[in-house]
C-alpha cells in the first residue's frame, strides 16, 4: 500500500478580504516617491510639485483663513444643488418604480438626459438662472438628478416582490406598503447610488466654479493653473479628494446606521 498523501488545498482566493492600511500605504509610497524624485531631480519641478511644498501651501491656506473663503461657498453650492437634485431624483425615481405610466413616460427622457455632459449646458443655465449662484445650483442639481433617478428606480424594482405580495395578502393599504415595505427595501440601493451622485456633484461643482466664480475651490484651482502655480493647483486637488473621501465616509456611516438589519 502506498503512503497516504495530504489532499492539497485548492479552494483559496476569489474572495475580497479586508486588509487594513493597504490603501493608506499606497498613498504614502506614492507621495514619498514624488518627494524623493523632486528632491533628487529626476522629476522636474515643472512636471510635479514637491509634496512637502503642497503641504506647506495647504497649511498657509489654513492659517491665512483663505481656505474658508474658498471652501464655504463651494460647500454651500454642493449642499444646495446636491440636496435639490438628489431629493427630486429620489422622488421621481420612486414614482417611476411605482407607477407604470410615469415609468413609460419618463424612463426614455431620463435615458436621453443621462449622457449629456451637463457642463455643456452651463451657458444655457446662465441665461435661465443668472450668472450668480443660481446657475451653479442648477448645474449641480441637474447633474446629481439623473444618476439618482436611475439608481432609485432600480432599487425600487429590486425590492423583493414576495414581501409586497405579503403586504397585500394582509390587506395593508397601498400607502403602508410603500412606506413600510418598498421604501425601506429600496434604501440600500438608493444609498449606494448616492455615492455616485455626490461624486458627480463634486465634479460639476468644480466645473461650474471654473466658468465664473470669484471664490470656490474650482476658482482657486483655475487661478493657480493659469499662473502655472503647481503647488496651489495640487493643494486644490487635494482638498477635492478629501471632500470625496469625506462624503463617501459619511454615506458609509449612514449605511452602517440605517442598514444595521443587513448581515
Amino acid at each position: 500500500m502506498s503512503e497516504a498523501r495530504v489532499v492539497p488545498f485548492r479552494g483559496g482566493g476569489f474572495r475580497p478580504v479586508a486588509k487594513r492600511g493597504a490603501g493608506l500605504l499606497v498613498f504614502v509610497v506614492l507621495i514619498l516617491l514624488a518627494e524623493w524624485g523632486t528632491r533628487a531631480g529626476w522629476i522636474g519641478n515643472l512636471t510635479l510639485p514637491r509634496p512637502s511644498d503642497v503641504a506647506l501651501t495647504l497649511v498657509d491656506l489654513w492659517q491665512s483663513g483663505r481656505l474658508w473663503t474658498h471652501l464655504v461657498p463651494s460647500l454651500t453650492r454642493l449642499a444646495v444643488g446636491g440636496v435639490m437634485g438628489i431629493s427630486i431624483g429620489i422622488a421621481v425615481g420612486v414614482a417611476i418604480g411605482l407607477f407604470s405610466h410615469v415609468r413609460a413616460g419618463l424612463v426614455p427622457l431620463v435615458a436621453a438626459l443621462f449622457p449629456i455632459p451637463k457642463i455643456a449646458l452651463l451657458p444655457l443655465f446662465v441665461i435661465w438662472f443668472g450668472i450668480d449662484e443660481g446657475s451653479k445650483y442648477a448645474l449641480i442639481a441637474f447633474g446629481t438628478f439623473t444618476p439618482t433617478v436611475v439608481s432609485t428606480y432600480g432599487a425600487v424594482d429590486n425590492v423583493d416582490r414576495t414581501l409586497i405580495r405579503m403586504g397585500q395578502s394582509f390587506g395593508l393599504s397601498w400607502f403602508s406598503i410603500v412606506r413600510k415595505i418598498v421604501l425601506p427595501g429600496a434604501l440600500p440601493g438608493i444609498l449606494s447610488g448616492l455615492r455616485v451622485s455626490i461624486a458627480i456633484g463634486i465634479i460639476l461643482l468644480v466645473a461650474a466654479e471654473m466658468l465664473g466664480a470669484e471664490y470656490g475651490i474650482g476658482a482657486y484651482i483655475l487661478q493657480a493653473g493659469s499662473l502655472y502655480d503647481l503647488e496651489r493647483l495640487f493643494a486644490g486637488v487635494v482638498i477635492l479628494s478629501a471632500l470625496g473621501v469625506l462624503t463617501s465616509w459619511a454615506i458609509g456611516l449612514a449605511e452602517k446606521r440605517l442598514l444595521r438589519w443587513r448581515s
Partner: peptide, 24 residues
C-alpha cells in the same frame, strides 16, 4: 397566508414584523 419563504421584513424585529399587520 403563510409563505414558503417566510416573507419577513428583514429590517423589522420579530415584534415589528407582527405589529406590521396590526398597525393598519
Amino acid at each position: 397566508y403563510v409563505f414558503q419563504d417566510f416573507a419577513l421584513l428583514p429590517w423589522r424585529t420579530v415584534e415589528g414584523n407582527i405589529s406590521l399587520v396590526l398597525e393598519d
